[in-house]
């Protein structure tokens, strides 16, 4: 048996951008190989600034290492420029960090949820080597295939063209996130245990915790 430097710890995360808020949800299960569940509560989402939250799914150790490195950079940025890094700047910085390990990547699917300089909700998603894109809603991780089409359906009502578009209220977004995760936990064995939802608005970042299926 030769050494392989990566494992897939599973787990899912999603983010939804609202008019003046952003919502980022992730489960807390840490899975191992061969249907093993290592632990029920190992968060994969972390607050980075007062207007930005990160979630990394895939290889848990790399996810944690990446946050550590990004937080360090945020700190240096604060000392150098005497201000907190904006969410779009953070997104670009994470992309650079990920690409700096192009040939030994951090094995994580990353999403960033937060507010931009104008206080509008933004979501950025990244691949393991730093390709990134700003989106309005995004799911990543082992349950992404299950969640993403549901978000397409519910968040901007893509398939109800005759319905008038109105900004998505926070309570509706919260309900969509919870429904998405209860469904994903039902069918994806690597998603479950607890759900953590970060709500980012002008007031700052708030976390709420909910139960998910534990089997």
């Amino acid at each position: 048996m030769s050494f392989y430097p990566y494992t897939d710890n599973g787990g899912s995360a999603l983010a939804i951008a609202g008019e003046d808020y952003c919502l980022l949800a992730s489960d807390t299960r840490q899975s191992g190989e061969d249907y093993k569940i290592h632990a029920g509560y190992v968060p994969k989402a972390f607050k980075l600034t007062d207007s930005c939250v990160y979630a990394g799914v895939g290889f848990s150790a790399d996810g944690v290492a990446l946050v550590k490195r990004v937080r360090q950079s945020i700190e240096w940025y604060r000392h150098a420029h005497e201000k907190t890094m904006s969410t779009p700047a953070l997104a670009q910085m994470i992309a650079t960090v990920l690409y700096s390990k192009r040939f030994f990547p951090y094995y994580v699917g990353t999403i960033l949820g937060g507010l931009d300089e104008n206080g509008r909700g933004v979501v950025y998603s990244f691949d393991p080597v730093g390709s990134f894109e700003a989106e309005l809603h995004k799911a990543v991780g082992s349950g992404a295939e299950l969640i993403q089409p549901f978000l397409d359906n519910q968040v901007n009502l893509k398939f109800l063209p005759e319905v008038e578009r109105t900004p998505l209220p926070l309570d509706v977004a919260l309900q969509i996130a919870k429904d998405a995760f209860t469904s994903a936990a039902e069918r994806d064995t690597k998603t479950g245990d607890y759900l953590e939802i970060f709500i980012i608005d002008r007031e700052g970042v708030n976390v709420e915790r909910f139960d998910l299926k534990r089997d």
Partner: peptide, 11 residues
């Protein structure tokens, strides 16, 4: 099938 499982389970 995975996408369908997700949408059906939720809707």
């Amino acid at each position: 099938d995975d996408c369908l499982l997700g949408t059906c389970e939720a809707l």
